[in-house]
């Protein structure tokens, strides 16, 4: 039985809007094993980025954790003080790679300086930056940046998007984190560069034995990257399964509909669509969040909220169809 890195227990997060709290995440239960890549997929507004930010405690002031626990290596990180969390976990045990590498690097400092900063703080300010330079160049080389010595002294604007994302990955892996949260790190990149970055990421995961929570809306990408997939809809996790199993035998009607919508080069038949729209945050339907758009919905879906239950080994789904 592999070790569990992260366990999220009945998590609910709310955002304050015009004096009212809106439920953004509801009843999230999720486990992440060691060295596992778990993909979190869903459409915009489904709460996947919020979940990533909640784990790193990067939520804005207007948000609050209503209930639930986030247990990271046997420790409830919600109850830690901000200082302890910053000293022990954020940037050390957990790291994040964000969507837009353009905004993640400071434009007025050299790339090398920014990597040195991370190394300097990792050494608890014991080593001088001069001593660390060799290490920094080594890291640049490892993430596949050609001519690292020269590149070390360049500014972010001299790097291409793909190279910036390589630098971000390098910085994230410096502290050898147990958990990396990757929030759509390849959306701004071209197809061939995207494949390069994901190939690099796969190799880094193996080398550093890191677990990854990979947030994405691109099912094609996660098909080739993740071990397991969690599908989110309107603030809830509706299905969790092994990657191949999810694509071959989707259980939840939303997953099924989503897969039928997806244009695929092997598919020639007409694409299906999901009628209606993702519900508004302040106006969730009663019962199952998906029932107004679901072609299988029946009376019970409108009244009760389905819970995420194990329907097969390691395959969880939140739908009353499994529970007649």
């Amino acid at each position: 039985m592999p070790e569990k890195i992260l366990k999220i227990d009945d998590l609910a997060v709310e955002y304050k809007n015009k004096g009212k709290y809106l439920r953004v995440l509801q009843g999230i239960n999720l486990e992440l094993k060691k060295e596992e890549i778990l993909a979190l997929v869903g459409e915009s507004g489904s709460g996947k980025s919020t979940l990533g930010k909640t784990i790193l405690r990067l939520l804005p002031d207007s948000a609050r954790i209503k209930q639930g626990k986030i247990i990271f290596k046997d420790q409830d990180i919600c109850s830690l003080s901000e200082k302890d969390f910053n000293d022990q976990i954020r940037g050390q045990e957990m790291a994040m790679v964000i969507q837009n590498p353009q905004n993640a690097l400071n434009p007025v400092f050299k790339v090398g300086t920014q990597i040195l900063d991370v190394l300097y703080f990792k050494s608890k300010k014991q080593k001088s930056r001069k001593e660390l330079k060799k290490e920094a160049v080594e890291i640049l080389k490892k993430v596949g940046i050609s001519d690292p010595e020269y590149r070390f002294g360049e500014y972010p604007h001299q790097f291409s998007g793909g190279m910036k994302q390589r630098v971000m990955l390098a910085m994230a892996f410096i502290s050898n984190p147990s958990l990396l949260i990757a929030d759509e790190p390849t959306t701004a990149l071209d197809l061939t560069v995207e494949a390069q970055i994901l190939n690099l990421l796969s190799n880094l995961v193996e080398e550093y034995q890191t677990s990854i929570l990979y947030i994405s809306h691109d099912l094609g990408v996660v098909a080739g990257l993740s071990d397991r997939i969690a599908v989110m809809y309107a603030g809830r996790i509706v299905e969790v399964a092994q990657t191949r199993e999810l694509f071959a035998e989707p259980n939840h009607p939303y997953t099924e509909a989503l897969l039928n919508c997806l244009p695929d080069y092997q598919k020639t038949e007409e694409l299906q669509t999901i009628p209606g729209q993702v519900p508004d945050l302040n106006n969730y339907p009663t019962g199952c969040n998906f029932h107004p758009r679901c072609s299988y919905s029946f009376a019970r879906c409108r009244q009760e909220e389905p819970r995420l239950e194990e329907i097969d080994s390691e395959h969880f789904s939140a739908c009353f169809l499994n529970d007649p």
């Binding site: 291409s160 793909g162 190279m163 071209d190 197809l191 061939t192 560069v193 995207e194 494949a195 390069q196 994901l198 190939n199 990421l201 796969s202 190799n203 193996e206 099912l219 094609g220 098909a223 080739g224 990257l225 191949r244 694509f247 071959a248 897969l259 997806l262 695929d264 080069y265 092997q266 598919k267």
Partner: peptide, 24 residues
């Protein structure tokens, strides 16, 4: 190279073992 980066969701593949075109 461009179309080899194309995979269907039902194909069995992953980024680790795939041959990927180098450079930008």
């Amino acid at each position: 190279a461009l179309f080899s980066s194309l995979r269907g969701i039902n194909d069995d593949w992953n980024y680790k073992e795939r041959e990927i075109i180098e450079g930008e």
